[in-house]
Design a protein around this nucleic acid. Sequence first.
DNA 1: ATTTTTGTTCAATCGCGATTAAACAAATCA
DNA 2: TGATTTGTTTAATCGCGATTGAACAAAAAT
Lengths: 154, 154
Amino acid sequence: MQDNENKQKQDQLIDKFGSYFGSIGFQPIAGRIIGLLSVSDCEELSFDEITSRLQISKGSASVVLRRLVAEGRVAVVTVEGGRRHYYRLKQQNLFEVLDEFERMCDSVRGLLNTTIDLKADKKSSNARYFYQIINTIDKYKTNMAAMRQAVQTA
Amino acid sequence: MQDNENKQKQDQLIDKFGSYFGSIGFQPIAGRIIGLLSVSDCEELSFDEITSRLQISKGSASVVLRRLVAEGRVAVVTVEGGRRHYYRLKQQNLFEVLDEFERMCDSVRGLLNTTIDLKADKKSSNARYFYQIINTIDKYKTNMAAMRQAVQTA
DNA sequence: ATTTTTGTTCAATCGCGATTAAACAAATCA
DNA sequence: TGATTTGTTTAATCGCGATTGAACAAAAAT
């Protein structure tokens, strides 16, 4: 009973992980695998445990796990002598998400600069708006750099 | 010649806007419309100018524009006496993107908290990892609050 | 009143990633 | 060696949002 209830709560959480990772561009199954590895009390699960717990085909699991391993999100643990593969959540650099966000900011900044360059009237309403955005991005990046430094030295 | 070259550059930029907005969950056409309204020297374009410049069906344009207007990304300008609708880029609150990012942080934070709650061993490797992430999120939010204040009073 | 312009609605299609099933390969066991 | 477990590969399918085309509606022009 207790166990069953716990499992249900875990399943709900796994789905929430799934939709979160789905929202940032992961395949649904990839998100749910990360969810399972995050939620499970046992931190190393076999291929078989993953497919049966998530009720997914071996094919899906194989493809998605390979990708997750290649991306460095999941680690494979091969126990000596055994033939099974075990998978565990790989801990990420905590600033990785911020890195990606800043890269996105950079690309937007570049895009806006090019856009302004191409404009006949650099003082037009939109051009001024774009200048403002560029400015805000710059402030944000300065701020983030300071924060990283603070965390590093802490 | 000059004109044609300029138009090509604009088209490239419009596609870049398109793929950027696509990457953050917009329909391709929505992204390209925003791109056109951003890049165009004329800041108010009619329905017809949009469909013909982007080579899209009236149906698509109608649906997508309605949505963009509903979301507050595009404004409709109806000139007195005329029957045409004109569309212009609506300038956003510059912190809107950050707002969304912070909301996402909040939801992740909640998810991780729930996950830790459910764990048998709160000192497990993953649990400790999740605590670290929560901590970093908190630092980030504190920092952002300070930055906003600074921008407000500037 | 009729025609033209302007835009909307909606059924049908298109494209594409996600997923599966089943055949296949490789390693271990008996 | 033959049987079993463990995972991979790939062709086919599924699902779903994006897009179109064509019929339709509303307003203005003639």
